[in-house]
């Protein structure tokens, strides 16, 4: 197995301006190509901004929309994982992330868990994604879980059952609960979370968080990658716009899964039986 060079496209979207954001994505894609990356990953709602409220209605695009098509087309040069508000044929609105490669869509993930508490209002505007699967990319399998999706361990668990060497986590994570450490509490939570999943599912976890402010809400960036041993592979030590590239050695997955065969020993049938019984009992 080889290495993949992953570019973390830690962008600061302009709220509600799909054109400006698409231009920025294209500029980041150009830079990632120049620097020899295999894939460039953008954060949750990188094409629209996050705190949309009623703007959701205006920024939504069908997946066959021309604006979206440009980014899919760019994947002829480099794989691109990007995120926008997707409108279905039935006029439902989803937070979605698309993985495009070779000029076509390989996978679409619609965000399943929509936080609607505290500062979050996603449930007011978005429909909930209803399917989950991993997908094949060249020599490995990948999964996508958007931000809150990974606060539900069932999502990475199910993706792992489907087969997952790399978990991509596009996020719009706000900085909250400033702590004594000179980083926000949220940043520490996220680092802990991706390291834990990487170790438990012996896979790489690629977390790409946006930056900038929207109505005073601070998005803290600090995109990062954790490896299958639970150690950090690299991080963007900044809450500014950045494009940084890290190399993921896929051989480490093989090594780690032999050393710690958690996935081999995972009993999905036991899980399925028990879950069915417990859900039935509720």
């Amino acid at each position: 197995m080889k290495s993949i060079r992953v570019a973390l496209g830690q962008v600061q979207p302009v709220l509600g301006d799909v054109y400006a954001n698409a231009d920025k994505h294209m500029a980041f894609i150009d830079r990632a190509v120049e620097q020899g990356a295999d894939v460039v990953v953008f954060p949750e709602l990188g094409l629209t901004g996050y705190l949309l409220r009623d703007l959701t209605y205006q920024v939504a695009r069908r997946i066959d929309d021309r604006d979206i098509g440009k980014l899919i087309g760019a994947s002829q040069r480099i794989d691109v994982l990007f995120s926008f508000v997707e409108e279905s044929a039935a006029h439902r609105f989803y937070t979605c992330s698309v993985y495009a490669s070779g000029g076509r869509v390989i996978h679409v993930h619609r965000k399943i868990y929509l936080p609607t508490y505290g500062l979050f209002e996603e449930g007011r505007h978005f429909s909930r994604g209803e399917s989950l699967n991993s997908f094949a990319v060249a020599e490995y399998r990948a999964g996508i879980a958007i931000c809150e999706d990974v606060w539900h361990p069932s999502v990475p668990y199910l993706l792992s059952v489907a087969g997952m060497d790399v978990l991509y986590v596009p996020a719009a994570g706000p900085g909250r609960a400033l702590g004594g450490d000179p980083h926000s509490g949220s940043q520490l939570f996220w680092e802990r979370l991706i390291r834990t999943y990487a170790q438990l599912f012996t896979c790489y976890v690629v977390f790409v968080n946006r930056v900038g402010f929207e109505d005073g809400v601070f998005f803290f960036g600090h995109s990062a990658i954790a490896g299958p041993d639970g150690e950090m592979v690299g991080k963007v030590a900044s809450h500014d716009e950045r494009l940084e590239i890290f190399s993921l050695d896929l051989a480490n997955i093989r090594k780690e899964r032999y050393r710690t065969p958690l996935l081999r020993d995972e009993d999905v049938h036991f899980t399925q039986r028990t879950l069915a019984r417990l859900v039935e009992g509720q």
């Binding site: 600061q12 900085g175 400033l178 702590g179 004594g180 450490d181 000179p182 980083h183 926000s184 900038g212 402010f213 005073g216 601070f218 809450h239």
Partner: peptide, 15 residues
Amino acid sequence: SVAGAVPVLVGFLRD
């Protein structure tokens, strides 16, 4: 708890 707040506040004003 505000040991790391200054860069956030400065970024907020600028942005």
